[in-house]
Structure formats: C-alpha cells, structure tokens
Amino acid sequence: MSFSETANPRGSVADRLRDALPKLVLSPTVAIVAVFVYGFIAFTFYLSFTDSRILPSFGWVGWTNFENLFRIRAWDTAVSNLAVFGLLYISICCALGLLLAILLDQKIRAEGFIRTIYLYPMALSFIVTGVAWKWFLDPGIGLEAVVQGWGWESFRFNWIKDREFAIYTIVIAAVWQTSGFVMAMFLAGLRGIDSEMLKAAQIDGASTFSLYRRIVIPQLRPAFMSAFVVLAHMAIKSYDLVIALTGGGPGTATELPATFMYSYTFSRNQMGIGAASAVIMLMTIAAIIVPYLWSELREKK
C-alpha cells in the first residue's frame, strides 16, 4: 500500500528524500517513545535491582528490593487497600453507570441536560474533587456537623478520620467522579442494540426485567470490557485523589501503591524499593491493558 513503492525508483537525492519524508516526520515520535517510554521503563526496571537510595546508583543487589518490598507493612497495606478500593470502585461504577444508562434510555425529556449533569465531574481535576469531598466529609464542618445542627444530635459520619473506614471515602469520591463516564459508555452500548429484536421479544411477552437480563445486558459485554479496563487502570494509577482527600491517612490507612511509590522514592530515600513498587504497578497494568490493546488492534485489520 505504500506510496513510496509506486514512485519511480530513479534514485536521485531529492526523490529519495521525498520517499523518506513520511518516515522522517514520524521519526521524532518514534525516538521520543523509544527513549521516554521504553528507555525509561528499562531504566526504572534496572534501578529496581540496584542499591539506589537518594539518587540512582548502579550497585546490583538482585531481588533484594522486591524481597524487602514484600516485607514492608506499608506496602502490604497499600496492596490490600488497592484490592478493596479497586473492587468497590469498579463494581459500584459499573452498577451505577448501568443503572443510570438504563434510566436515561427510556426516552427521557431533557436527556442531554441530565447527561451533562451526570458527566461534568469527569472534567474536573481529582484535586478539586478531593478538596470538595474532603471538607464535605469532614466531621467538624461537613455532613456530620450539618446533620447534627439540624437536630439529629447522635448522627455520626466520621469515616474520613477513621482508620477502618477512610478507604471507603476514597471510593465515594472516585465513584462520584467517574460513574457518569461509565454511564456514557453503557448508554452508547445501549443505543447500538437492535430495537427490532427488543420489540420482537416484547411481543413474545417478555417482561421488562427479563428483557434486560436476557437480551440487553449480555449485548453490553464490549462496553463492560472497556469500562473494566479503563476503571482498573485508573484505580491502579490513583494518586491525586488520595493526596487531596486524605494524604494517605489517617496514618497509612489510605495508602495505595502509587502513593507508596512516591513517598519511598522521593521522601524516604529508598529509590530501589520505590522502583520495585513501580515495576509491580506496571506489570499489573500491563496484564490488563496488553490483551485489550492486542484484541482491539487485531480486530481492525
């Protein structure tokens, strides 16, 4: 398909330059990606096997950093927090997104307007979201204080200050920010379903509930796949929201791998361990993203 093949191979410098032009245009990008993505990945990979502390250093220590990493309690906390957060975040976003999409798909008046309301948090920075929810959930001035002021004196809602429950406040804020986006994905999926098929099933006497369960939801599988991939990779990369909402606290109650990596690398001067934790984050994301990209790019051929 290449045009350079159809050009007359006369071999003069100008012709050759012209034939090479497309590749020349692409080459800065190729160089940038080779160095700043893959070169850097290789570099961090290498660092994870070295004795780097404050600065990168190149003394080989084998698997020591990984062994130490798995002995650190904070990493344990970060990983189990990610499991709790990720599971709740993905499942609540999917459930809520699907519910909202189905509700909005009922030939609603002002659908566009309502959709705009559901989706606007996606345009905000996680820092803004974090600030808003941080003070709204703060027991001293937020929800708890307000409800108590309304007369319900015994009302308690201090999750954000509670080691046991603080991780759920991250879920609340993260779901608020992204569920509208998941709704949009499902809505696009719903709009793609053949309405003739639904009508036929309806005439056959299927109830609304079984219509959705048997016909509609199974057809949304691609949308579920995309939602899962996007949400899972966002969960693993979650950093800003935790910093703004809880700063990882109280104590280490809301540390996630991303915040762990940052503090071990840049504040605790354990760069080798920080690099090792980044490698594990990359591996986890790659396990989700690579098969997805593979299938998407293959289909297109």
């Binding site: 290449s2 980044a278 984050m281």
Partner: peptide, 27 residues
C-alpha cells in the same frame, strides 16, 4: 503512508498512554 510494522508501532505508542507514570518519574 503506511508501512510494514505501522500497527505494531502504533500499539507500542498506545501502550505508552496507559503505563503508570510512576515508572518514568525517576529517569
């Protein structure tokens, strides 16, 4: 102006969008 390996190249480019940026902070 596609060429052999363009899809692979694009896939590599795309993967770069999804990596956790913690992986590139130090270098």
């Amino acid at each position: 102006w596609t060429f052999r390996g363009a899809t692979v190249l694009f896939g590599l480019l795309l993967f770069g969008c999804f990596i956790p940026f913690q992986m590139v902070l130090i270098p």
